Simulated scan of single mutants.
Amino acid sequence: MTTVTTPVENYPLVLHLHPIINLTDEQFFDFCQINRDLRIERTATGELLIMPPTGSETGGRNFRLNGQLYNWTEQNGTGVGFDSSTGFTLPNSAKVSPDAAWVKRERWNALTPEQQQTFAPICPDFVVELRSVSDNLTPLKTKMQEYIENGALLGWLIDCKKRQVYIYRPRVAVECLDNPATVSADPVLLGFVLDLSKIW
């Protein structure tokens, strides 16, 4: 008899270090470098969030998502795009790694080369989180709100399980689209339209 199991929503793993251990920014960066097989973030209050690599299906979706963003970014030229392996330090000191991100070129160029080489101290103007099979939706919604509160102009939370897209903007109620064919990033990324048929 074969038993089929459903993945349990138990990620991320949360490690509480404070007040016993207080990692400096440099120590946290080094910790992430020696644990490259894991996605590691740090909350504004110092907890470490440990996530395993995504499954192949989610990785493929993320690849296609970033491919579309890359193509638009190269043609538009007004900003710089980043994939899920990139860490940012938000103004509230949280260290995060969205599945896709974009920063206006003038903001990125205002950083020093040293800042650009680590977890850049900047909140992206645009962020995307792609819900994987093991992701709990509630922490992702909290994370999206954190992006907006720290300066993001637009955020998308793409829930492939329910074929929904949550759209986050400053000072605007969260909008939820049910099974959309496309979603537009206007006016923040003027002309960028994500084809969700490539993501679902």
Rank of each mutant, 00 (worst) to 15 (best):
M1N: 13
V4C: 11
V4A: 13
V4Y: 15
P7V: 12
P7Q: 12
V8M: 14
Y11N: 09
Y11G: 00
H16I: 12
L17Y: 09
H18Y: 14
P19W: 08
I21N: 09
N22L: 12
N22Y: 13
N22T: 15
L23Q: 03
D25G: 10
Q27M: 09
F29G: 05
F31C: 01
C32P: 06
C32W: 01
Q33C: 07
N35Q: 08
R36P: 10
D37T: 11
I40Q: 06
R42P: 01
T43P: 04
T43K: 08
A44H: 14
A44D: 15
A44C: 11
G46V: 09
E47M: 00
L48Y: 03
I50L: 15
M51Q: 09
M51K: 10
P52W: 03
P53E: 01
G55A: 00
G55I: 03
S56W: 13
S56A: 13
E57A: 11
E57I: 09
E57P: 02
E57M: 09
G59E: 03
F63I: 03
Q68E: 08
L69F: 03
N71E: 15
N71H: 10
T73W: 00
Q75R: 15
Q75T: 12
Q75G: 10
G77N: 05
T78V: 05
T78H: 12
G79D: 05
G79L: 05
G81R: 09
G81Y: 09
F82K: 01
F82G: 07
S85P: 06
T86I: 03
G87A: 05
G87D: 01
G87V: 04
L90M: 13
L90I: 00
P91R: 05
P91F: 02
N92E: 07
K95C: 09
V96F: 05
S97P: 05
S97A: 13
E106Q: 05
R107V: 01
R107L: 07
W108P: 01
N109E: 14
N109L: 10
N109W: 04
T112F: 11
P113H: 08
E114T: 12
E114W: 02
Q115M: 04
Q116Y: 02
Q117I: 11
T118H: 14
F119Q: 02
F119E: 06
F119V: 01
A120N: 04
A120Q: 08
I122P: 06
C123K: 04
P124D: 05
D125I: 05
D125M: 10
V128L: 00
V128N: 00
E129Y: 02
S134W: 03
D135H: 09
T138E: 14
T138R: 12
T138L: 10
P139K: 05
P139W: 06
L140R: 07
L140V: 08
K143R: 11
Q145L: 09
Y147S: 06
I148D: 03
I148E: 02
G151D: 08
G151C: 05
A152I: 04
L153C: 09
I158K: 08
D159N: 15
C160E: 12
C160G: 14
K161I: 13
I167H: 00
R171H: 14
V172E: 15
V174L: 01
E175T: 15
D178A: 14
P180M: 10
T182S: 11
D186A: 08
L190R: 10
L190N: 12
G191P: 01
G191R: 04
F192I: 02
F192M: 13
V193T: 15
L194G: 00
L196E: 06
L196C: 03
I199K: 01
W200M: 00
